[in-house]
Amino acid sequence: MLELLKAPILTFQEFVLLSGRAVRGIFRKPYYWDDVFLQMDLIGVGSLPVVILTGFFSGAVMALQMSRALQKYGATSQVGMIVAITLVREMGPVLTALMVAGRNSSGMASELGSMKVTEQIDAMRALGTDPIMKLVKPRLLATAFVLPLLTVLADFVGLVGGYLVACKMLHLTTSSEYWSSAWQAIEYDDIAQGLLKPFVFAIVLSLVGCHYGMRTKGGTQGVGRATTQAVVVASVWVVVLTFIIGRVFVTM
């Protein structure tokens, strides 16, 4: 039993140590701003198409699925509210994070993993650079900055998707009613929750991706394994954390 637990506990310990060093590193020099901007471009601009598509269709599907239930209660005018609340509180942050986990946590794990197995990380240390500062910190900063922005965009595009389905396709409600019910439904704590979640997810996604990359062993096969593990672990963390954060906001 103890033997079985040893490996996951050791992995978690390594993750916590890496996270601690990366977070401490945020307040220390050196800052590799070129790398931060490069990562922002890769993660932020690079994820735009997938995030816009996911956001748009999640809003559209939400309006589509809710239409029958709302018709049953004669509450079709509230479709804007339902789409807004589900998107801003849950679907926007979670789906965006899952997309970025699939795209970027895996990318970080494979890139850093390849560097690890070809001794580039050792070379970096030997040549005077701390890999945490040069590789992990820029990815952490960039993800923490762009994921909330991507989420806001996904929320908005999702509302547009919901609007097109509810107003133009199914004619459930008028445009002004849709947008005003959506606008009125969102409260400050929804926005706080909707922005806090992607920020927390960003920290976890980037650190999990970097962690699995930095501990890669065993050649190209190891790189593949690290990539898969990074996506799986990051995705699971996203759904667990959304529940925990949601729970905190519900009881508040």
């Binding site: 001794e119 050792d122 070379a123 040549l127």
Partner: peptide, 20 residues
């Protein structure tokens, strides 16, 4: 502290360890 020491050492890694 090691960074200071390493600046006095040159190293060639097995596969070269060049940054791709």
């Amino acid at each position: 502290q090691w960074f200071d020491v390493r600046s006095r050492i040159g190293v060639l890694f097995q596969e070269g360890g060049l940054f791709d």
